[in-house]
Nucleic acid binder design. Structure first.
Lengths: 217, 217
DNA sequence: CACGTTATTGGCGGCCCGCCAATAGCCGTT
DNA sequence: AACGGCTATTGGCGGGCCGCCAATAACGTG
């Protein structure tokens, strides 16, 4: 038997493409090399031939997922203000996410390993507890009950806290003091200025999701 | 053979403890139930008896890791200002991280699945590309070269962007517009007010890492 | 000292993965 | 047109890990 021969480069690309779609749908451990091989119409051993191990194949897949998306809109607008440039860039980022929704979720979810709903739930609960804590500490109770988005925004802040902490503990690019100042200042600005603006902004417009430049008016 | 019998509750706890330490050191797929069982001095089948599957055991372990840490300092100080309370709470969070460093890294790293250095590197690179993009867009080039911390802070902002985006795409608790406003406002405040403060704060003090209340002076 | 209860285990069956020797398509040469 | 040689491709072996179930052996109780 054996499929027709193929140019190694093409073959490699073809396998990688199949692997990518599968890894996008289900987590690493749930996808077997057998399955990938079958989907590509190829023997399992060929995967090992082109990419060494299963993990290597996975790495190649994730790398490709992340290679396309980021920074696709590096359009530099010299005459514009910082705010305008930031606004446009953020809009580009959101646009990108909306388009490559699945890919992005798989890739960053892959930060760990990709879509394990149960595990996700556990970590999620822990993060929600942090949010609860913040709400209590800063005395946002009533406001948070009235506007559920408050909790979501605080989860955003939590994401920043985690990332900054990693910069301190793992990569050593920030000192503990710097992390502290950073988080404290940001939290206060978010609470005092940004949070109300996000909420009010939502309420003063129709829920049509298309309007491009919401803020710098 | 067979070890001496033990109270089911105790046995369960004992196994879980061993599993926790192992899962803290190495990623999920690198730890075998055989190994856990051996470490606990127990047959492999007993793991399946107490916890159903390997993943269930893992979930239990992570749950316990995350159960202890969060919100251990819910001390509510009524008389204090919001800033003081926030400051103290953040200090508590950092203190906690510093103590349970390993646990925390394993648990949140476990967001995916825990410590896969190669994969981590791939995602890391992608995030750095986002930081590059931001630096370019807002024209921070020279400043960023002078102060490497700038990039670290922007990674923090990146964490917020990812978290907020998840609130929008996955949990649906924010609209796209809200995410936009949130990110734009925060980024601008960070750039204009917070970033300089973090940097200058670092330079005006000795690098002694112990001083507790850096900011609200 | 039986005797039931149940914590504990040995071992089977199945799946998955990495590797290597063997196979079979394609191409240039004569 | 036949023939090698090169290499893409594969079958299958060996090892590991996991879930399950029937069998076993501690322990409490009459």
């Amino acid at each position: 038997m054996g499929v027709e021969r193929m140019d190694p480069g093409d073959r490699r690309r073809q396998i990688l493409a199949r692997a990518r779609t599968l890894f996008r749908e289900r987590p690493y451990s749930e996808v077997s090399t057998t399955e990938i091989a079958a989907a590509a119409g190829v023997s399992r051993a060929l995967l090992n031939h082109y990419f060494g191990t299963k993990r290597d194949l996975y790495l190649a897949a994730v790398t490709e997922m992340l290679a396309v998306p980021p920074v696709p809109v590096p359009e530099y607008v010299p005459g514009a203000s910082v705010r305008e440039r930031a606004c446009q860039s953020i809009e580009g980022w959101l646009e990108l996410l909306e388009r490559n929704r699945e890919t992005w979720l798989a890739a960053v979810g892959a930060d760990g390993m990709g879509r394990d709903p149960e595990l996700e739930e556990v970590v999620d609960a822990a993060r929600d507890r942090v949010v609860d804590h913040i709400v209590q500490v800063v005395g946002l109770g009533p406001y948070a009950r009235e506007h559920p988005e408050v909790r979501a925004l605080l989860r955003g802040f939590g994401g920043m806290a985690e990332a900054a902490s990693r910069e301190w503990l793992v990569r050593g690019r920030l000192t503990r003091r710097q992390v502290h100042v950073f988080l404290e200042e940001t939290l206060l600005r978010v609470l005092a200025d940004i949070l109300p603006r996000v909420i009010e902004d939502d309420h003063e417009m129709a829920p049509s999701p298309g309007l491009p430049w919401p803020s710098h008016t």
